[in-house]
Structure formats: structure tokens, C-alpha cells
Amino acid sequence: MTPHRRRPARTRPRLVTGVAAASALALLAGCSAGDEGSGASSGSGSSSGTTSSGASSASPSSPVATTDIGDAPEPLVEAVARRYGGEDVEGSTHLGRWRGQRVAVVTAEQDVTLAIESTTRRSWKVVGGWWPSLGETEGAEDLGGRRHVLVLGSDAREGQDPTRTRADAIQLLGLDGDGGAGLMGFARDLWVPIPGHGTGKLNSALTLGGPDAEVGAVEDVSGIDVDGYVLTGFEGFESIVDELGGLSFVAPFDMDSDLAGGKISAGRHTLDGGEALAWARERKSLPGGDLDRSGNQGLLLAAAAVQARAEGPARLPRALSILDEHTESDLSAEEMLLFSASFYRVSPTRVGREVAGGSPATRSGQSVILLDDDARSGFADFRDGRIGG
């Protein structure tokens, strides 16, 4: 077994408990409330129409130009002005938080600038974005390239540690850095090596070794390097969906589940948190059991991505603030902002979706799933961040 390559340890301000199911990361979209953080206006969620006091106060080495991006912190105005290199810019600022650090999305017509605030001094840094107004060279997209992030839904109930409870949902999101993407669900009962804990069901890795072990198990079985994780639990998932205003979803079939909120007819709905959680959890009424459930979780993620594109990147900081209250993650503010924003640049025709499964078997007295050749082929296809040609 190839040793798991550990990511550098991160210092996190806190462990957020009471967190909820697998759709959290892609639910970065449908919020309609105002942005969080000082410097953002209330109401619509954007800060526009007011010239910042820092609009022409850039440092001597910075270009002097008209920079009107709403009621933004002065250091952020200066950072945006430097990115535009002397060109005038007029737009809106949208603020939020991720892991105790402020993040910003500045929109100016078709331009989007992504920035984070330093945690040690009051300064801002532009970390990415896209700027068509600056032309083909200066306006080139900068979003960090190829990445894979593991989205985990913990089976934790009230009072349980979500980082040490079985994984109820395991979904890997990928970006190829060139407009393509993929979403791969993993059957919970896959029989796989678990770093430091022998062999077992994939969902048990979270119980045995926490999120790092779950990431390591996914890496070992798939051969795909995972850049980080986002972990949720039942209660938090419901809160995320509800606080974002619900999830627009087209159910492809009638669901008749005994779970609360599990009576969902085929057709278009705006799911509340309980209904979305029931859709993500239901297994017993599905002909394919756990494999079909993993596929259904992928449908929720795909619906959230469509909703995100419709809402636009201005809503992203507010959504990150909501997720920050209900998730655990090892992604930094810069990584999370870039990864999330990248989905607004993905072509819908270049996104594939699969479930990694296999054949039923028995191991150590347990009903398990053994990987088949289709799953292995899917892993090879997904290593570049995209599923499909």
C-alpha cells in the first residue's frame, strides 16, 4: 500500500460541532440575504453606489485611478486598484468569512476579483479572479488550477463528534483548471485499505482516524491526490439549506421514504433542509441501495451547482459565512475561495458524474462492496479533475 502523503498541519481557530451531510460544499449558491462582515452594506448583499474613502489613497507605488467598489475597507480598495494597474474600476464589494478570516468578492460588470484579508495585519491580498475588461493577457483567469476536494457527510447525531462518526456520504469534487469538472460518489461499504488501521469499509475510516484517515483511504483506493476536505453532519446540513433559502431541485422520480421529509414527488421543488437531507440519506426504498443513494447525493450537488451559476459569484462570501458556522474543514480561506469560485467558470457541458462501486461480497462477516474494473477506470479518468472526454 502506498503511504498516504499527509498535508501540512493547519492551525484552525476552532472545531465546529453539530455539522451535517454531503451537499455542503456545492451549496455555496442560493443565498439571498445580505453579506456578512464590516464594510458590506445590508439588504441586497452587495456594497455599491458609495465611493470608498480609500478610492484614491493607494500607496505611492500603486497606480492612481478611480476605484469605486462600494463601501469596502481601504486596504481592499488599494489591493483591487493595484490589480487593475491604473485602469478605472467601478463595482461592488461582497464580504464574508471562512475559518476566522475575511474573504471578499469584488464584481465589476463581467470582472470578478477574489481577495482575502491578512490574519496578522490589516491588509488585503488579491488571490485570484477573472478580468475580461483588461483584455486577453491582463484579464486572464487565475483560479489555482487542478484540484480535488472531498465532501463528507458524517452520521453524527446530537452530542456526537462528527469527525469520529461513520461517514454517511462520501463525494469527491474535482476541477481540471480548464473549464471541466467531475463529481464522484463513493459507496460507503467499499472494502478498502485504511491508513494505519488495516482494511475495512470506507465509511469506517472517519471513525477510526478522523478526516485525515478518510482522505487517506480515498487517496489510496483511487490514486487521486485530495487537496482537502469539508465535513458536515445532519443538523448542520439542514441549517445550511434553510439559511441559504432552500435548494431548487428537480426530482427524477417519486421518493417514498420513512425518513422525515422523505415524501418527495417527481418534478420541480424548492427543498428545505429536512427534505434535502432525506433525499441524501434514503437507501432502503432504492433498488440499488447504497449505490443509488450515492448517486442521489450527486444529484443534489449538481442542482446546487446550477443554482450557484444562476445566483452568481456575488453571493459566494455570504454562503461561505453560513458554511463556516456548520462545517469542519482543513481548507484555508484562500483555497476555499478559489475552489468555490472556480465552479462559476466551469462549462456545464464539461462536467461528468459517476459513482465508484463494484460487486457485493462478504469480508470479516460484513456485507461489503469490492471495487470493479469500471470503478478503477473511472478513477484513472478523474485524476485530471474532470470526468468524461
Rank of each mutant, 00 (worst) to 15 (best):
Thr120Cys: 03
Leu323Ser: 13
Val149His: 01
Ser48Leu: 06
Ile170Leu: 12
Gly86Phe: 07
Gly295Ile: 01
Arg353His: 02
Thr199Ala: 11
Ile69Leu: 07
Ala375His: 05
Glu90Phe: 01
Val218Ala: 14
Tyr344Ser: 02
Thr207His: 00
Ser46Glu: 12
Pro73Met: 01
Arg5Gly: 12
Leu277Gln: 03
Ala108Arg: 00
Arg12Cys: 08
Thr327Phe: 06
Ile194Met: 06
Asp227Tyr: 03
Thr107Phe: 02
Asp381Gly: 04
Leu277Asp: 02
Glu78Ser: 09
Ile369Leu: 10
Asp381Tyr: 00
Leu95Glu: 03
Asp324Phe: 06
Leu259Ser: 03
Gly200His: 09
Ala308Lys: 03
Glu90Gln: 12
Gly153Cys: 04
Val103Arg: 05
Asp155Met: 14
Pro75Arg: 08
Val230Thr: 15
Asp254Gln: 11
Asn296Lys: 00
Gly43Cys: 00
Thr362Glu: 15
Leu337Glu: 10
Arg309Asp: 05
Gly261Phe: 11
Asp381Cys: 02
Ser56Thr: 15
Gly246Asn: 04
Arg166Leu: 05
Asp290Lys: 05
Gly180Gln: 03
Glu354Met: 14
Trp124Cys: 02
Leu208Pro: 03
Ser47Ala: 12
Ser342Asp: 10
Asp292Met: 13
Ala81Ile: 02
Asp324Ile: 09
Leu202Glu: 01
Ser239Asn: 14
Gly389Glu: 03
Asp258Lys: 12
Pro162Arg: 07
Gly245His: 00
Ser239His: 13
Ser285Asn: 01
Ser294Thr: 14
Leu134Met: 15
Glu328Gln: 11
Ala302Asn: 09
Ile69Cys: 08
Gly179Phe: 04
